[in-house]
Structures are given as C-alpha cells and as structure tokens.
Amino acid sequence: MDIAAEIKSLVFIGLSLMALLSGGMILFFENLIYSAVALFFTLLGVAGLYILLGAPFLGMAQIMVYAGGVLVLIIFGIFLTSPYVEKELSFKRHMSFWITSIMGLVVFQFLVRMILRTPWQVFTTENNAPTSAKDIGHLLLTKYLLPFEIISVVLLFVLIGSVLIVRKDLSKS
C-alpha cells in the first residue's frame, strides 16, 4: 500500500463523515434554516467525493447548481412560507419517528449486506485520470445531443410551469 492510497482513504473518510453527519442533522433539526445549512454541508461533502472519484467538472457543477442554486431556492421557500417550527413533540410523533428510523436502519443493513456479498468485477483503476471539461463538452454535443436538447426543453417547461403555478390570478382583481 502506497502513501497516495492512504491519503485517498483519509480524504474519503473525512468527506463521507461530513456528508453523512450533516445529513443526519437534517433529520434531527426541526428548525428549517438549520436543516438548510446541514444540507449545504452534505452537498459539499458529496461534491468532494465526486472530485475524489475523478470527476472535478461534476463536483464543480454540484457546488454551483446545488449549493448555489437549489439551496438558495430552498431558503427562499423557507422565508416565503411562515416559520413553522414544531413546538412540542407529541409522544405519538416521537414513536413514529423512532419506528421509521429503525426501519430505515433495517433497509440500510440489507443494502450493506447486498453490497458486501456481491462479487464486483472491478478493473484495476490505479491510473484513472480525471475527466476534463473538454471531453464532457465534446460528448454533450455528439453522443448525448438528444438528451441535452430534451433537458433544455424540460427546463423551459419547468420555468414556465412554476411561474404559471405561483402567479396571482389577474382576472379576478
């Protein structure tokens, strides 16, 4: 085992702990702003994992689109709706929360057993170069041209549709 693999393992542990712990905080916080900040750190950790996996373009896209766009949108939503914070936790809600968490842990251990028992055929990836934005751009305009165009139409429809949903009804006033 060389020193680079050790460093990669350490960085992996740090990033995944950051992602998973702050993801758990979303579950335990009742305050929406706290949850949004925890979600920010989760997204940052996942972006770091992307960069670790040789996808720096994707990591940067994750930071820009999620941390810069989606999270700001969510915070806008929190501010535009009234600050609903659950004051008291009733016993019943508490019970359902813990029961659902335990069910989630059961699903998780099922997934982990499935992952560990599957004989994955992995090619050795010692010299896996990070992909460049040039390759991705080239592929977007050749092989993935159709999904690229479809997704632009989807974004246009979402833009028009969300404006249509939240607009004020001008015919009444």
């Binding site: 542990i13 992602a19 998973l20 993801g23 968490s101 989630g104 842990l105 982990v112 992952i115």
Partner: peptide
C-alpha cells in the same frame, strides 16, 4: 485498511439514500 474501494462508496451512497428516505417519511 484500504477504504478507497467500490464497496465503501456504495455504502456511503446507501446511507445517504436511507437517510433521505427516513426524512421523506418522518
């Protein structure tokens, strides 16, 4: 131990998935 392997990333991903599922449900 050498943690930079396929299984550890898949386990992190599975944990994120289960966390999202529990958040959606509770």
């Amino acid at each position: 131990t050498y943690l930079f392997c396929l299984e550890s990333f898949l386990i992190v991903s599975a944990f994120l998935f289960v966390l999202g599922l529990v958040i959606v449900l509770t």
